[in-house]
Design a protein around this nucleic acid. Structure first.
Length: 785
DNA sequence: AAAAACTATTTTTTT
DNA sequence: AATAGTTTTT
């Protein structure tokens, strides 16, 4: 232990925090509001245990995301020597489950090499299963069943017990569920839900094993407890008997995973499950300025199902919350980009201080373009976009199959990734043969299948040869390299002649190899098993971390647990946030919690935007401001022309009968149709209102529509979703020599520049088509040289 | 069996 | 608008 640390572990703590760190009287529920220093308490508590002689092996800390796990580990590391931490487990529920199941795989008819199936794999299993029974297997049905199975497992039940949403489709869920489980077992695979469900089931049915584990980890800490589902809770109850040293930390107001089976009830009833549990509340916020907290408190106060709390801070009121109405999605994006620019130029913020939070991933597109146009670096923190690419998945399928020959889904994926003369008919014959022999596709393919065309037969033979080429020895990345080479995924010689798409694919495969190499370097001795598990359980977002000097863009879900000096919450429209789905299903409270989470990410500046129309499903649709905006107290909103407009809408919303249709109580199946109708009605109203007093209601835009749209440089999307890759932009920005693009004149080179802000600055450009012209800077976009 | 043309569907959110 | 899945054509 680092000298003198024991006392340091208690410094800078308020009274409640200190008690939470020191408490030793058994179960402890820590209700920790946003920004209340929860991680600090947990890490100090664990560090202190270890520093006072507790064996690190006896402690396990469970988090929900890998990022949280890593953060917790590194913060404990800051407090202790690394060797003191030896044996300490900080892990997600899912990783812990996978680890557990590897150990007890034989109890479930699996081997320790089992595959982990994500929802795509699950759907593939279901599709094949339904197809085999001749049942309908459309994407909609498959999806619905998959979701039902997932929900069932999250709720601690088996797939057979899943309940399908009522439909006219006659489907025996019990049978489908049974067949699904059989298919998983045949494939030596567990699905995501199993990683949680199975450990809990095994422990609760095996008394002695349960006791064994209770001795293994007498000290348990669970982060984000409000997000636990029934299956997780059952497992936890086995591990932590009543009276044990169990710390659960959470905030019912930040429960945003209800759709994944999370039950807020777990945190609310915790004291009942663990009688005598100490309950501590942390309401002092160390993150946000007063106005932001007031705004967030005011929104979340509209919820009924909550324990109730009010955050306060000593940081002063700070700036007011800015509210901006925009004409459409693109205008919104440009407004935000401009605002970021001015915050950096005038108020000393750095790009890395800024985050743009969205409700759904697809909203990031417009913002990427706008930031690109202004040459602002940004980073999109997205789940796992790289691994989602088709060609990468294909390559991984080869690896999966090489590792687990019984992984039928991987077999199909890898086989179909290339034209091999094996079509639907042949596949049908093959799977029939496999079914009859009770073996995997791989095994069936090894013996000769009757009725196969010669071409198909040889195609399958070639395919098997590829897999046999996988070396059993050597470093992981080299073995993968050999395999990909054999599978002709790398296309090494044909890089130049082959078409663009193929080249891209080969690039991706190379990147995958680099990724594997890095993984091996970081985790010496790691097996293919470890790598595949990592690919399944860890998104790239986790690799993220400090975005350096770039604006961060991510979903609100991904932003949980993070904080930024400046936060933009964009797309604040009814039907988007709250989402149409939530509106339909009456899930408004969870959406409001999501809004609360978003707002409480901000330290100093919070800016909320919405667009009056937005392109959805390929068509422009009028939008209404999010109902959450009406829940903001007026006094914390920055006075602007928009406020008057909002107030008018607000007033109207209270009286007009049109609003009634939007209320959750009117929820029924044709909500969407109703929404459209009402939207049309309201649009007309808004339109007439605007045409009455356009100048007062509408802040005149600093640019024309044409300029706005012309300015948007068409960017190739997708590539920036690198492993948290920072956008490479023209490094020096607007300087003589910079390459620029103009919609009319094409590409050119900057010859001189004149000052002004992004709206008024002029730039002289010599275009490559011969034209020389001084032009408003905003009509130009920087491009890479 | 493979490629091309056509169609329905999608936008929550993530381990 | 983009894509995944399905049907038709080659």
């Amino acid at each position: 232990m680092k000298p003198g640390n024991l006392s340091k572990l208690l410094t800078d703590l308020n009274e409640v925090q200190r008690e939470a760190v020191l408490y030793e009287g058994g179960p402890l529920l820590l209700l920790a509001g946003a920004g209340s220093g929860k991680t600090r308490v947990v890490t100090r508590r664990i560090a202190r245990m270890i520093a006072t002689g507790v064996d690190a092996h006896s402690i396990v800390a469970v988090t929900f995301t890998n990022r949280a796990a890593r953060e917790m580990r590194s913060r404990i590391e800051d407090l202790l020597d690394e060797d003191a931490m030896q044996g300490l487990i900080v892990s997600t529920f899912h990783a812990l489950g996978a680890r557990f199941l590897r150990q007890f795989a034989d109890r479930f008819g699996r081997t320790e090499r089992f595959s982990i199936y994500d929802e795509e794999d699950q759907q593939a299993v279901l599709r094949a299963t339904l197809q085999a029974c001749g049942a309908p297997h459309s994407a909609v049905i498959v999806k619905a069943i998959e979701r039902a199975i997932d929900l069932a497992k999250n709720a601690g039940r088996e797939a057979e017990e899943a309940s399908l949403p009522p439909s006219d489709m006659p489907l025996d869920m019990r049978q489908v569920g049974r067949l699904y489980e059989e298919a998983l077992q045949r494939a030596d695979a567990f699905d995501f839900g199993d990683l949680i469900l199975r450990p809990g089931l095994l422990l609760s049915s095996d008394e002695s094993l349960c006791v064994q584990f209770q001795h293994r980890w007498p000290r348990i800490c669970v982060d984000e407890f409000q997000d636990t589902n029934a299956a997780q809770y059952r497992w936890l109850k086995c591990l932590a008997p009543v009276g044990s040293d169990l710390l659960v930390v959470g905030d019912d107001d930040q429960s945003i995973y209800g759709w994944r089976g999370a039950e807020v009830g777990n945190i609310i009833t915790f004291p009942d499950a663990y009688p005598g549990a100490r309950v501590l509340r942390m309401e002092q916020n160390y993150r946000s300025v007063g106005h932001i907290l007031t705004a967030a408190n005011s929104v979340i106060a509209q919820n009924h199902q909550r324990l109730g709390k009010d955050l306060w801070s000593l940081l002063g009121e700070g700036m007011q919350v800015e509210l901006q109405a925009c004409r459409d999605g693109r205008h919104e994006a440009f407004w935000v980009a401009e605002r970021i620019q001015s915050l950096c130029a005038d108020e000393g913020y750095a790009l890395g201080d800024v985050a743009i939070l969205v409700r759904a991933n697809h909203l990031t597109l417009d913002f990427e373009q706008a930031l690109n146009c202004l040459g602002l670096r940004y980073v999109v923190v997205r789940g796992r976009s790289f691994f989602e690419r088709a060609c990468v998945q294909d390559a991984i399928a080869y690896l999966r199959l090489a590792h687990n020959h019984r992984d039928d889904i991987a077999f199909l994926r890898a086989l179909k990734s290339r034209s091999r003369g094996v079509g639907a008919k042949s596949l049908e014959r093959l799977s029939k043969a496999a079914m009859e022999a009770g073996v995997s596709l791989y095994e069936a393919a090894q013996s000769s299948v009757k009725g196969l065309q010669r071409k198909a037969q040889s195609g399958i033979g070639d395919f098997l040869k590829i897999l046999e080429s996988y070396p059993q020895e050597g470093p992981l990345h080299e073995r993968a390299h050999k395999l990909f080479q054999a599978a002709d995924l790398l296309d090494e010689q044909g890089l130049l002649e082959s078409d663009e798409e193929e080249r891209q694919n080969a690039e991706n495969i190379k990147r995958l190899l680099t990724y594997i190499e890095t993984f091996v370097e970081e985790n010496p001795g790691a097996t293919l098993d470890d790598f595949l598990e990592r690919v399944k359980l860890i998104g790239e977002a986790d690799v993220a971390e400090t975005s350096g000097g770039a604006v961060s863009m991510m979903t609100i879900h991904a932003a949980k647990g993070l904080e930024f000096s400046v936060v933009f919450v964009v797309g604040m429209e009814d039907g988007l946030f709250p989402s149409a789905r939530a509106l339909k299903d009456g899930q408004i409270e969870e959406e409001r919690r999501l809004c609360y989470v978003a707002m409480t990410r901000a330290r100093q500046r919070l800016l909320l935007t919405w667009a009056q129309k937005r392109q959805t499903f390929g068509e422009q649709r009028k939008c209404e401001p999010s109902r959450f905006l009406f829940e903001l107290p007026e006094e914390v909103i920055l006075q602007s022309a928009e406020l008057g407009r909002l107030a008018v809408l607000h007033q109207k919303s209270k009286t007009a009968e049109t609003r009634v249709a939007l209320e959750p109580k009117r929820r029924d199946d044709d909500w969407d149709a109703e929404w459209k109708v009402q939207n049309a009605v309201q649009n007309r109203d808004v339109e007439s209102q605007l045409s009455d007093r356009p100048e007062e209601n509408f802040e005149p835009l600093p640019w024309s529509d044409e300029a706005l749209y012309a300015d948007a440089q068409p960017v190739e999307m997708g590539f920036e979703a690198e492993v948290l890759q920072v956008q490479k932009k023209a490094p020096s920005g607007w300087q003589p020599g910079a390459r620029v693009f103009h919609v009319q004149f094409g590409e050119g080179e900057v010859t001189s520049i004149a000052g002004g802000d992004s709206c008024t600055a002029h730039v002289a450009v010599r275009f490559f088509n011969g034209v020389e012209q001084t032009i408003l800077r905003r009509y130009l976009s920087l491009i890479d040289g």
